[in-house]
């Protein structure tokens, strides 16, 4: 039986792990490579690194970080943050990333999904979607959640699937950083519409929230940041609780 995945997410700024509340007010959470090693040893199934640095040196530092991470951990990892071109995707995959997460760039240039999927396989292309409730629907936001595109998030996710994305990383901007639980309504709707895995992100505050995302909204994976960074939830405890609830997870070994 395929197991549900637990994915700690590391937001990186200037080479350090940070975590914001509603995309603002960043707190420092440490050295990303050390944190990645810790998660890998504690039973995380995958890791996601999102670089939110906005400087010119970013590309080089991100590549260097990917090389270091690939050397230190042996679970799969995704890297994202401002990736715009096929060349950038190739550089990061060649440096050791397993997947790249694409967000604003695919809204502006959706063909990047097709091209990336054709060149590197669907499994390497993660479409990250930041969705925010606007009236009765959800809109797609870009540029770190600062710009409303006016696009319908559910329609957009069906389009990224058609174009060849291998997975969707769906962040609820209403819930991100709030620890109020995932947006189950959104998750459930998406999971009825698409046939590629959906990673639930935004709002994890405790173990029950993660259990609910799987049991009530059929999330294929749950992603969280601060509850893991600040040890509010241990991955081992989360996995044990999921098992108790009848959710298949990779057993914690060490």
């Amino acid at each position: 039986m395929l197991t549900r995945r637990i994915i700690p997410c590391l937001d990186i700024k200037n080479g350090r792990t940070v975590k914001g509340v509603n995309f603002e007010g960043l707190r420092d959470a440490g050295d990303p490579v050390e944190l990645a090693k810790r998660y890998s040893e504690e039973g995380a199934d995958e890791l996601v690194f999102l670089d939110i640095t906005a400087t010119l040196e970013k590309r080089k530092t991100l590549k260097d970080l990917v090389v270091k991470i690939a050397r230190e951990i042996n679970i799969p990892f995704t890297v994202g943050g401002g990736i715009k071109t096929i060349d950038e995707i190739e550089e990061l995959l060649k440096s050791g990333a397993d997947k790249v997460s694409l967000n604003s760039s695919i809204v502006k240039n959706p063909d990047l999904i097709n091209e990336g999927s054709r060149n590197f396989g669907a499994q390497a292309i993660v479409a990250a979607v930041d969705a925010k409730k606007t009236g009765n629907s959800w809109h797609v936001f870009i540029k770190g959640g600062t710009e409303d595109t006016g696009m319908d998030a559910l329609e957009w996710m069906q389009e990224v699937e058609r174009r060849g994305a291998g997975e969707i990383l769906l962040t609820s901007m209403d819930r991100d950083g709030t620890k109020a639980g995932f947006d189950l309504d959104l998750l459930e709707k998406v999971n009825k519409l698409v046939r590629i895995p959906v990673i639930a992100s935004g709002g994890a505050g405790n173990i029950q929230h993660c259990v609910d995302a799987v049991l009530k909204a059929d999330a294929d994976a749950v992603l969280a940041a601060s509850i893991f960074h600040f040890r509010e939830v241990e991955i081992k405890d989360l996995k044990n609780e999921m098992l108790k609830n009848g959710i298949e997870v990779r057993p914690y070994l060490n």
Partner: peptide
């Protein structure tokens, strides 16, 4: 189940 098959399996 959804394809691709992604994750740990037995």
């Amino acid at each position: 189940y959804k394809v691709p098959h992604i994750g740990f399996n037995t």
